[in-house]
Design a protein around this nucleic acid. Sequence first.
DNA 1: TTGAAAGCGCTAACAA
DNA 2: TTGTTAGCGCTTTCAA
Lengths: 336, 336
Amino acid sequence: MATIRDIAKETGLGVGTISRVLNSTGYVSQETREKVMDAIKKLQYTPNGVARALAKKRTMIIGVVVHDLTNPFVPGIASGISDEARRQGYTMMLLDTLWQMEHELNTVEMLRQQLVDGVILLSPANANVLKSKLSEVGLPLVVIDHGEAIGTSDITVDHYKGAMEALQWALECGHRRIGFLAGPPGLRFSDLRLRAYLDAMNWQHLAIDTIDRHSQLPIAQADFRFDKGISATEALLQRHPELTCIFAANDLSALGALHYLAEHKIAVPEEVAVIGFDDIPTASLVHPPLTTIHQPIYEMGAASARLLLERIQGVKPLEQPEPQIFELTLIKRKSC
Amino acid sequence: MATIRDIAKETGLGVGTISRVLNSTGYVSQETREKVMDAIKKLQYTPNGVARALAKKRTMIIGVVVHDLTNPFVPGIASGISDEARRQGYTMMLLDTLWQMEHELNTVEMLRQQLVDGVILLSPANANVLKSKLSEVGLPLVVIDHGEAIGTSDITVDHYKGAMEALQWALECGHRRIGFLAGPPGLRFSDLRLRAYLDAMNWQHLAIDTIDRHSQLPIAQADFRFDKGISATEALLQRHPELTCIFAANDLSALGALHYLAEHKIAVPEEVAVIGFDDIPTASLVHPPLTTIHQPIYEMGAASARLLLERIQGVKPLEQPEPQIFELTLIKRKSC
DNA sequence: TTGAAAGCGCTAACAA
DNA sequence: TTGTTAGCGCTTTCAA
């Protein structure tokens, strides 16, 4: 592997000069530049990024921590980030924590080691610890939709309002007996969607943390998952055959509902309607196409990258939050 | 930011000793170790990964170059890689080229800069150039299913055989008039699936590169995409109303076919059957669930990571190929 | 316009 | 068992 010193030797110049042509900084005569370029080509030289990062104190890489690569939501966000980052000369490093607390911590521990210039956290379960860990070492950070009751996200949406809009539509369609496939309890955005459901059903008096005690309610836990969406739908309809509509806390579980209904030849939306939340790509592919709340996934990713880069470049202060709230829109397809 | 030198000063020890307790190499007395640990905690010290990488000449990161994060196939592979890498203490860095030649080259150019210890290329369009670029700098490499006519992949499947198996099943089901939704021409695995189709239809004499001249054949270009799957199916059925089955070169386009058929109230599989290829997660979610050829996606990802790490660690030689061919299996669901 | 030299923060001999 | 020192390959003053 050729180093900058080899180029210096080959051309008879000093390493400083080589560095200058490599970075187009300072003055270099045309003649010298060419001589250097020739040597670079001849020796197949590529600068060593690690050494450069050490000297410059930046790597031009941003780290993105996600909970599950196979959740269709995630690649959407990631490609928004990746595109925007690339546009500004940065590279994205994706890190998957598989919803495991332990991995989330390990991951942030390795990000502390300065291999990245900044970090984007996507729906972290415990944003607050991670945040303080990273700010200890002064790493710029952007949080998309954190999962804790308190704390601020830089990029987010109005989950409550979105869910309410979905339910409003269900009511407009004439549905009165509406069941709910809930997400994992304790996660902020999961709870907000549940809250909207309770309010829309006129159960404002019920606190979300006591909901599991009201087993007579048409609510079943589906944990944002497809497979649990199937079983939860089954449970729901057995306990509540009177339901004419199911609102799922996310698309994946809504797809589970759709799957169950199709298997049991229950017509959608004629017998039971279904509404989801997220608008993942698959939502439009299933039959009937899923009516759902659209999140501008790609745009949210791009915006988070833009904000992070501003913080990295010192345009925006690291700690001062100014949340961007993205618009949700109801996409009326065929399932409700 | 505290450095190793600060810890040395704080404890009154030499930097070598600090390094030793950090890496658990060589002898360190229990007492010293504790003193160091205390100082680390006190000063909130985290070792600088870049400096370490420069000194050790390895970063413990592997780069994974993919063409499209939003293709469900990709996250499947990536999570296999990520899991296996993590198990061995490595971190995965995902890079998206969006099917763009230019990005593919830029990406490899940055990987040349030694920020990673090895590279996995997923279905690269031009594996050969990338390969030589990386081997110039001695970077270990694993290729999953390259897209060129000649060249070897380390991890692959028998596309021809898989497609043939799918067609055999269609024939067994009594279908004789079978249409084909083709992938992008010129890609090795795309062409192999087409070849199998032609052979199964007893059109062995037709060369794949002249296929577009035979416009009377029940073949339409769907380019592995959902939206083109819809329009291609429409075109196909208009020209060939006699078809009773459609074989799609991949699941995404098969889903497009399914979508078209549902929209036009054409019963699947009674009136027209559909078979796909890949077995992406969505395949089992649609209605009717898609009969398709299953690729062990996760396993292939894990295997490629294992192989790469063996090459990085010098257990396996860098250049000597010994391709692993994974088994494809026909998954009979409801669409055929 | 170019060269020399001092780091960047860490690891790994080698001495002590 | 610990300390010292010479790199790793590059950038960046400061002189020349």
